[in-house]
């Protein structure tokens, strides 16, 4: 038997959980070859050492610790299962409130004869009229919601639009406050991102100086 064959045969026996001593050919080779004899001896010692090696017992309170941890984990999971849907619902509602104005129908107001007749002079224009003009300009394009509603019959479409307009009007104070808050937040973040350049002067105080007071 060659040393390679010895090695393969030894592994095969160990794979079958059999003692190498059960194979006479293996033992015969080990008596002739010093290296293989050392391997066989080391193998025997290895398994002796494994059997002798005592794994310490876990602590006496091991089982109680496991049960306590299980209960704590279960309580946490239960709490999470209640709070998580609520948090998601609140988030979804907030997003809906913010996004709603973009999807509502804004029908362009019909041009009144008076507004048509009146010349559009920005200097003399009433601020309310200017606001109305701006609103018309802003909402003249059709929204995706409108596109969707064109697929419905006219009567259904009108009913839906009326309902949606009513809902929008009811929710307008809330959405406006959300939009204002979001804009303020965006402004704050953007301002925070811009760093002052090296040579850029800081904002000056607006209190009048002595010179400017008398000049």
């Amino acid at each position: 038997m060659q040393c390679d064959a010895f090695e393969a045969r030894l592994q095969l026996l160990l794979d079958r959980r059999q003692a190498p001593e059960r194979d006479p050919a293996l033992l015969a080779h080990a008596t002739c070859c010093t290296e293989c004899h050392a391997v066989l001896h080391a193998q025997r010692l290895l398994f002796q050492g494994l059997e002798l090696g005592d794994v310490p017992d876990p602590g006496s309170d091991f089982t109680m610790c496991v049960l306590n941890r299980t209960q704590v984990r279960a309580t946490r999971d239960r709490r999470l299962s209640v709070h998580l849907p609520l948090a998601l619902l609140a988030l979804a509602t907030s997003l809906l409130l913010i996004a709603l104005p973009h999807f509502t129908h804004r029908q362009p107001r019909p041009e009144t004869p008076t507004s048509q007749a009146k010349p559009d002079t920005s200097d003399s224009a009433n601020p309310q009229d200017q606001l109305a003009t701006a609103d018309r300009t802003h909402t003249s394009g059709s929204s995706s919601w409108e596109d969707l509603l064109t697929l419905y019959p006219e009567k259904t479409r009108r009913r839906h639009l009326q309902q949606m307009d009513r809902l929008t009007n009811d929710l307008r104070p809330i959405t406006q406050s959300f939009t204002t808050a979001a804009a303020a937040l965006r402004r704050t973040i953007l301002v925070g991102k811009h760093r002052r350049k090296k040579n850029q002067p800081q904002a000056q105080l607006l209190t009048p100086t002595r010179d400017s007071q008398y000049s």
Binding site: L45, L52, G53
Partner: peptide
């Protein structure tokens, strides 16, 4: 014990 420690 020494052998067990070595194997460990």
């Amino acid at each position: 014990k020494q052998l067990a420690e070595e194997v460990d």
